[in-house]
Design a protein around this nucleic acid. Sequence first.
DNA 1: TATATTGTACTAATACTTTAATACAATAAG
DNA 2: CTTATTGTATTAAAGTATTAGTACAATATA
Lengths: 130, 130
Amino acid sequence: MAAEVDTALRFSLDLKSGVPYYKQVILQVEMAIVDGRLENGDQLPTVRSLAVALKINPNTVARAYNELEIRGIVNTQQGTGTFISNKKIELSEVEKERILAELTRPYLSNARAYGFSLEELIKHLQSMAG
Amino acid sequence: MAAEVDTALRFSLDLKSGVPYYKQVILQVEMAIVDGRLENGDQLPTVRSLAVALKINPNTVARAYNELEIRGIVNTQQGTGTFISNKKIELSEVEKERILAELTRPYLSNARAYGFSLEELIKHLQSMAG
DNA sequence: TATATTGTACTAATACTTTAATACAATAAG
DNA sequence: CTTATTGTATTAAAGTATTAGTACAATATA
């Protein structure tokens, strides 16, 4: 960790992690939503203020915000700011299926390579989730 | 789709998908494991034969096999070939449990982050495993 | 041992990704 | 209307990823 934002959001960048700055920003917005620091309608730090605070270029923040907008997580309006999207995001069934397949495929192939049976996996899943 | 392997595995590359060739190879090995076309101990196509069949460089196939080896999915030995790893016999029950937990934990947390329920995961696992 | 078969190492060309410098454009506030 | 505030577009530099050409090394087998 190195650069930190002096705000309730406490955004920060790990300069040595190798993770691109814009991806770190995306991740931190997502985490802030998950743990309630950001709610529907809340304004995010402005592109400039976050760029200054994190000591990176405004375009890098803007890129993060753009990706979040594409994912439907935020709404952006020039001159006004960037806000947590009010509408509830519903993934289409096709998108859900694709994501689920991408998550499950490597899990299943790894587990199979280790010799675990489907029954073992399901049993383990239930014990971890329950 | 364009280049296809004339084998039971039916590996093929989508040349226009933008997905790197070596990643497509990894994906197809994983899928072959998942649906049972490859089992523990089975030999994969040799680096050269798959490279010729897919009309790509041997190094590209080798890179895919290397990543699969790092993930513990295959074992490679020069002069012999590349095989689906059969770790089952080498692992103690305690080790198996630990590995299963390490495989399952990130899968479960990722899937939960996307909002998938345990029931959805199990249903999907069963459909993928056939 | 000789030879074929298997994976590996090194290098370079090309494309893509990431970030920043700088200037621009839309909206809000006075 | 003027000015401050907000996001956007263009371009370029630097790094990283991807792939192939070529030569090498380990193992199996006759």
